[in-house]
């Protein structure tokens, strides 16, 4: 079954890295996966979007056509990227950075960046907190698989903090969808 995810925010929030790790975990579980991205010329601050398609069959057209899930870490990204979301899809928002959530049926609001700062120590971990939440919400890959994919991608001295970030995201998603 094809699943299409779009992760969005502003440059520097790490949505591209999160998407790569998600796709890597899917490949590790034997699935087909493609990941693409679009961003402006600036290194920080411009709109940033990354897409992941996961399927059992080969994937040709590489971009998401109708997302099953959109993650937005800024107000601007939420407004720009949720429009074509499938009507049964899920919109996941950073509760504080998207103060005016678009009106969408299945919206999950999680204080992603706030949790990263308060529970992991830095806003830098927001993307991994988000990743932990997405794994729980979608159920597309195993939590253990995502842990090993994160551990492989991040600098060795940050593995422990990143594992903590994953767990914080996982727990927060559990609370939010209850």
């Amino acid at each position: 079954m094809r699943k299409q995810l779009r992760l969005s925010g502003s440059g520097g929030q790490g949505v591209i890295t999160a998407a790569i790790i998600f796709a890597e975990a899917a490949v590790k579980e034997g699935k087909e996966a493609v990941q693409s991205q679009s961003y402006g010329p600036e290194a920080r601050g411009g709109a940033s979007k990354s897409e992941v398609i996961i399927d059992d069959a080969p994937i040709y057209h590489p971009h998401v056509q109708q997302p099953d899930l959109v993650l937005a870490l800024t107000q601007k990204a939420a407004e720009k990227y949720y429009g074509d979301l499938h009507e049964d899809g899920i919109l996941v928002l950073d509760e504080d950075l998207v103060p005016e959530p678009p009106k969408f049926k299945n919206t999950i609001r999680i204080p992603i960046t706030k949790l990263a700062v308060e529970q992991v120590g830095k806003s830098l971990f927001a993307n991994i907190v988000a990743l932990g939440a997405l794994v729980r919400i979608t159920g597309l890959v195993d939590f253990e698989t995502i842990k090993s994919s994160v551990a492989k991608r991040v600098p060795p001295h940050t593995v422990e903090k990143n594992m903590q970030a994953l767990q914080v995201g996982w727990d927060a998603a559990g609370k939010a969808v209850k």
């Binding site: 490949v27 699935k31 996966a33 693409s36 590489p62």
Partner: peptide, 9 residues
């Protein structure tokens, strides 16, 4: 750019 930046299995 499509293939250059695409990641896949």
């Amino acid at each position: 750019e499509i293939i250059g930046h695409l990641r896949e299995k």
